[in-house]
Amino acid sequence: MTLAACAALLIGIFAYVFYVPRAAEEQHQKTRLEFLRERKDVVYENLRDLNFEYSAGKYLEEEYLAQRALLENEAAEMLAEMETLESMKDTDSTIA
């Protein structure tokens, strides 16, 4: 009985581990563009938080405007780089 249980466990696990479908999941290297998209989401979230907290009366107007300008500049730089990278990608695919 014990031997049968051990054998069943071994065979079941062996089959599961080594019977891998042909198309295994590809390990993809994150690109700069993907990284920038993530960062953009974070900066947008920071902007949303800032707007909300200003509406809640937590910031003085001058603090709010200064912080908003900083975050918008950060987002703008990021979007500019993203547009450049996207246009380069489009050019690459057209040439190909």
Partner: peptide, 10 residues
């Protein structure tokens, strides 16, 4: 709240 950033970025 972030449309300004988009337009500025554009």
């Amino acid at each position: 709240g972030v449309i300004a950033a988009d337009s500025k970025a554009s």
